[in-house]
Design a protein around this nucleic acid. Structure first.
Lengths: 229, 229
DNA sequence: TTTGAAATATATGTCGTACATATGTCATAC
DNA sequence: GTATGACATATGTACGACATATATTTCAAA
């Protein structure tokens, strides 16, 4: 028998264990936002540990936004922000290449899937916004500026979805996108197909076309990236 | 001027402030995984606070997976898991309805956008897996079992994408999906269009069709949910 | 009786110290 | 040169003290 994985021991510190206990406590007791929690000393007594350790563990849940506390009022359950905690670790410097590739691919997937939502929620104002960006692009030649305008265009599409979670999701992943973009741009240019869809093509489809047609054009538009990853 | 929002004061505790300082410190110093951090006492001295407070703040980063520490070896920067921290707060009980609706909608978006990836990464084994599930469905009448099989079918599609982040994303959101599903099922049944695509239709398209056609069928398949939210 | 100010009780927030524990370093012995 | 043991050091845990904010009670004045 190979010793390949002979150290699944994972020295958990006292605080880590307390965190786990609290996690399962919160889940099992089925707390709702606003519900009060036991006092720090009561928890410490119940677990047989010091208040210091309990506070270190609870401090973690405070960061997650699950627990809130005020002087003499005790602690209560709070409604957390789903994306905030993912945001905290969204740093290209900390993530590995494979994860970033996955995330970038997911962006492409979302953008393709967005088509139907867009047709449902499009308004003249949003269309005008897109056209404004495209017009600015027509009068720009600087490569960096164009990259920035491209980001603006796609951001505007997300805005149009009206889905706050998707919008924030995109904004959160922006640092990763920028990073992958810069990596892709450094690679030698590959031969693009001539019939690649432009931003104007997307706008026209959005104005008078169909979701399927839009998706087709978007696929063409993103083709370049699909091939790269 | 209305007093609508005249209390943006947000009493930040000492520990919260330390957390912010450390966050900006980590960002500005451009740490990479493996890089060592100053000692707890040095940080405490530099910030003019107690070691206790510093430890409470650092404890938070340990939960995020950004910092790791070992006795006498000091603290080092670590590669965090992006989804783990989002997972922690993914509890239907803690989130509000609007957020869950957004998340559910995003699932639909992802599933539509998945089409191209699926055609690129499909294999006979995966197709067989899908057919196996569909066959089981044909021999099942119990409503709960069918719901579970439906989840299995779509999970298998995610698996097929080969994108680990997307797979985990779907798995993470499962509790929300279940919740929304149960809510939708409780509503009075709406009249479905007769030409709604079945799982078999999706499989056929996947075997001999095109990404666009698959997306079209998937759209039809998910139409019911689209209308509900 | 009502009102309002002061005293009191209480739970969290911060701090300092002491000690436990693991780990790296170094000297000593063979 | 290797092994053993002593020592130094940074984190981990615990305890006690006090600060601070807030709820509750007390009590005096209107």
């Amino acid at each position: 028998m190979p010793l390949t994985r002979l150290r699944p021991i994972e020295h958990l510190s006292q605080v880590d264990k307390i965190e786990l206990r609290l996690q399962e406590y919160l889940r099992n007791e089925e707390f709702n936002p606003g519900d009060p929690l036991p006092k720090e000393m009561e928890i410490a007594k119940a677990l047989g540990v010091s208040r210091t350790a309990v506070r270190e563990a609870i401090s973690r849940f405070k960061m997650l936004g699950i627990i809130e506390s005020r002087r003499n009022r005790g602690m209560v359950i709070r409604r957390p922000d789903v994306l905030r905690n993912m945001q905290r670790v969204m740093d290209p410097r900390l993530l590995d290449g494979d994860t970033m590739k996955d995330i970038f691919e997911m962006r492409l997937v979302v953008e393709l899937g967005l088509a139907h939502i867009l047709f449902r929620r499009k308004t003249p104002e949003f269309i005008e916004k897109l056209e404004s960006i495209a017009r600015t692009e027509d009068g720009t030649t600087d490569r960096i500026d164009l990259l920035k305008l491209d980001v603006d265009f796609h951001s505007a599409l997300y805005q149009m979805s009206g889905n706050e979670t998707i919008i924030r999701f995109q904004r959160m992943l922006m640092p990763i996108f920028d990073f992958v973009d810069s990596v892709i741009l450094q690679k030698p240019r590959m031969n693009q197909p001539l019939n690649i869809a432009t931003h104007w093509d997307l706008i026209e489809e959005l104005k008078g076309g169909t979701p399927t047609g839009f998706m087709h054009k978007m696929e063409s538009h993103l083709w370049y990236f699909f091939e790269k990853i």
